[in-house]
Amino acid sequence: MDPTAEVGHENGLSGESGAAKMQERLQKRHQARIEEVERRKEAKENQSVAEEKGEYFSSTFATEQACVEELLSSCSGADRAAVTQRLEEATARTVQLQKFLNDSMLFLTQYKMRQAQAALQSLQTSIAEIREKALPKKKFAFGARSKGPGNVPAPVSDAAPPDAAPPADSGEVDGADASEQCFFSNMDDEFLTKTSEEIQKRDVLLSHLSNCKVRLFGSPSTLHLKHIDSCEILCGPVSTSVFVDSCRNSTLAFACQQLRTHNTTDTQVYLHVTSRAIVEDCHRVSVAPFSWSYPTLDEDFTASGLDRDRNNWSQVDDFNWLAAGIPSPNWSILPEADRKTNWGP
């Protein structure tokens, strides 16, 4: 793909006219030509830098790939503990490799990109296969949901009953893959915690909680809160977005890339947000800088990839209040004197 400039801006002969300006125009034209030549030269240089980077990428990628393959093949015949440890290392290295690929996409050719993606995929498959064989499945049951893994979408088949279609009117398709999505739901008056291992890189959903204290020690990929009443919910660094809907009378704390708050009232958010927080259909939401801490917070920040030095907690966009210059009445900054400093267990 060849990104081009957003919109071309020609340094044309706009505005003035008349012979007196001719000299100046010719001069400008000449200047423009020189600049164009320079630009081309630079583009060419960039091109060769890109090629060099491509070489570097290929060889580094290949070395690392071989290393993971080595690890995997050394699993056969090894004992449980050794397999566990090697798989862990292989997984971690694969994740690194994926990161490396992501970071390199800018200058890779489509062909190289696909090739690398395919190699990664096959590593991931091998890891899963070995794990399946050598280690019993660790079921990810999370939360106190009484329903079993409910309406798992049936494999698409032509023979499916014609009336099988739309899910209930509630508009919630839930239960599917319950072993994969982490959640707490329908709880009252509980103290709930999750460890880093349980939520790392996952999508976590908390719904229909009231009077609960929740501690999520770790770095999930994303976090959804829905129908929360009078709770205190604290969570480690979330690599992408936190989505809050229908929350009232609560205290929240987390670090994230984006915070999206909807239909929320009387709630305080202790926030570290690297891009932007927004509110929509909210009232009396107040924000303060993230101040919760726990022993592995530093590691989790690193794992999340969030920039610790960039915190835009005090800049909240209200989608119902687009009047420039006049502050939104729907959110405010929590006065320092009112901020919580002791978070307890």
């Binding site: 793909m1 060849d2 927004i278 920039d307």
Partner: peptide
């Protein structure tokens, strides 16, 4: 388009991008 995705904010309007592919 090969740009950094870590700084994206919720869109308060629209973005337009012209690119060749």
């Amino acid at each position: 388009n090969g740009e950094d995705v870590s700084t994206i904010s919720p869109t308060l309007g629209f973005n337009i991008k012209t690119l060749e592919h």
